[in-house]
Design a protein around this nucleic acid. Sequence first.
RNA 1: GUGGAUUUAGCUUAGUCGGUUAAAGCGCCAGUUUGUGGCACUGGAGACCAUCGGUUCGAAUCCGAUAUUCCACCCCA
Length: 430
Amino acid sequence: MALLTKAPKGTYDLLPRDTARWQAVEAVMKSEAELHGFREIRTPVFEHTELFLRGVGDTTDVVEKQMYTFEDKGGRSITLRPEGTAGAARAMLEHALYNEGLPVKLYYNTSCYRYEKPQAGRLRELHQFGVEMFGAADPAADAQVILLAHGAIGRLGLRNITLEINSIGCPTCRARYHQALKEYFSARCDELCETCLSRLERNPMRILDCKSPVCQEIAAGAPKILDYLCDDCRTHFEAVQQYLTLAGVEFTVNPTIVRGLDYYTRTVFEFVSSEPGYSFAIGGGGRYDGLAEELGGKSIPGLGFGLGMDRILLVMQAQQIEFPAEETCEVYLASMGQAAQQKAFVLAQKMRECGIAAECDVCARGLKAQMKYADKIHAQYTIVLGDDELANGKAELKNMATGEKKEISIGDDFIDAYLTLSTEQSDLAF
RNA sequence: GUGGAUUUAGCUUAGUCGGUUAAAGCGCCAGUUUGUGGCACUGGAGACCAUCGGUUCGAAUCCGAUAUUCCACCCCA
């Protein structure tokens, strides 16, 4: 039992009682993306391993330590996608979507896989909503993509989320900055903590947000990325901020945002939750102007973001954000005896054919049990059928909220009678 | 990957110093005189006490390993 009835580590089941909220969140994302002119793309769960080595970067933690990679029966090295951008970029290039007019604007809602050590909001199967825009190099594109994520987060009603942005420059100016950082920290390497010593070579920018007080003090005097941006990158970053300000979006510039994927250039951003117990990034993204070329395609700029659906749902739950009511049964047809059960069966199906959510007994239970069930599923109306009703061709339509009953025909005019009565009732409610 | 905690019915928990049929609330199923939900009452089902092993006459309880979830790192959505 222990093994067979337990979902694998770092995964979980989405149960019927939870799917409605997910659908609600997904609907907001989809709607916001489509408002911005993005269209859905669905790519395979697995790709050639090479795609992520080249695209995401073979020295990143995600690629080095966290990929689900295996050899298939044909000897190919296959990897479950650890993120969504590489696959979308691959598909865009493969199908030459850039010939259908620029920019190419894509969105997706998919699961990603990373071999993580799980914690709350850190899973091995995670769900991301993401968008990618290709062929737009202008800062207005950066601002629009950020605006899209910002809009979706706002529409969901999330609170305590801050937008943090940074520019990590182009490969040229970033290399100069890394060099300057290395020189600065190397001079004081005997004071740095052990972790930061290892960061010195791998990713010196990480030292900037080390939690050790000593490192923080040293980092405070370190060179700033923004001072090392080339003119083009600086102008671009300033323009992005200007657009965001024009749009009335609040943000802070956080020079320590680095992002863990190699493909990023220039603008990077994160949406960070400060909800107590849930202080993590619920989404992030940036520009990746070199990605398409790195994948062997034509040089085409790009940018996008990923929002962590699992984390967003966690925060929404923590903030007790209300979700729209679930679809519930409209009419429950209770019955007593076989003839009535058959009649209920037929009437329920007739209602469904007219688009009315109807249920009837399929457990051959007693009337009381059926009424309890109708209550449990929040049926709006019930109708009880028995020998008397079958004989008279009439039954009572009961409003479960008010207890009010009205006579209803169960003959050929049943649907019409129901529609008339239920309309009258809802009119009364207003 | 490192360090620390957690684990008892579907859920939330109690369980004394190791002592025999592991307890409660909620939920589920059924009944409360034969045709109507919510309230109340009564009853029932449901737990190899995470798993495997060890100590012991005896383990939910002590020890070990493994697993799970969570926390801090690492990293990230």
